[in-house]
């Protein structure tokens, strides 16, 4: 396969032709904020709107997960226009995310905290009115709990649930603000159908799906499935 060489933040890197900018960057230890990326998934979810980067010669910032790296491309991940878009996207996410870090098992290993720091965004948004979903927590599974209030709808768990099972248990339901990751008819996740593979927990960036027992960060494997 042909390879392309490009520059990201001044660093010269080579990537296989067809690789998306986000993947090329992450594989070369250049971090770009992201919540929904999945390494093994060919088509990006493009759900979180956080991976904006600037490309030299282009007016508008682009999402790094959807744009293929091309030969001679010059990418800037720290451009102010790109970060401003990412911050707005991030603050919109946080407007419906309960911020109680001190009492959250994800504290210290949370992707949201990491991203806030990286892009200079705020965990507690003042620009937008906070609107919480106040959904019940499902702790029916023996291995993990599911708190839909912390979910950012990235879709990683939904995808991974479909990779290991004949018929998937997790999926999206409802629309707009009520959109939620759930099971058929909103049944408890711990009912007999879950195979307890806990793959969904390992890919959850916000610990909306979190192992019981409370060990901090246990199991999180990021975008590498």
């Amino acid at each position: 396969m042909k390879s392309v060489s490009l520059s990201i933040d001044g660093k010269k890197i080579t990537a296989k032709e067809g690789t998306k900018i986000l993947r090329a960057a992450l594989e070369n230890d250049i971090y770009i904020a992201n919540l929904c990326a999945i390494k093994d998934k060919a088509e990006p979810n493009a759900a979180c709107r956080l991976c904006f980067v600037e490309i030299e010669g282009e007016e508008e910032p682009v999402t790094a997960c959807t744009r293929e790296a091309t030969d001679g491309m010059v990418v800037n991940t720290r451009g102010e226009r790109a970060l401003e878009l990412a911050r707005t996207g991030f603050e919109l996410l946080m407007a419906s995310h309960p911020v109680d870090c001190a009492n959250c098992p994800a504290n210290g290993v949370c992707e949201l905290q990491k991203i806030a720091k990286h892009i200079g965004g705020k965990l507690k948004t003042k620009r937008f009115r906070q609107l919480l979903r106040e959904l019940p927590i499902d702790d029916s599974n023996p291995l993990f709990t599911y708190d839909p209030n912390k979910c950012v709808l990235c879709g990683r768990c939904v995808w991974v649930c479909r990779q290991r099972k004949e018929t998937a248990l997790l999926g999206f339901a409802h629309r707009g603000f009520k959109r939620v990751v759930t099971t058929f008819a909103g049944e408890p996740i711990g009912a007999e159908r879950c195979l307890d593979c806990s793959a969904c927990v390992e890919v959850c960036p916000t610990r909306a799906l979190a192992f019981k027992g409370g060990e901090k960060g246990l199991g999180y494997r990021g975008w590498v499935v």
Binding site: R162, A168, L169, L170, G171, A173, T183, F184, A185
Partner: peptide, 10 residues
């Protein structure tokens, strides 16, 4: 998956 039917219905 049945969840996909439920997803469309909701």
């Amino acid at each position: 998956p049945d969840i996909d039917v439920y997803g469309v219905v909701t």
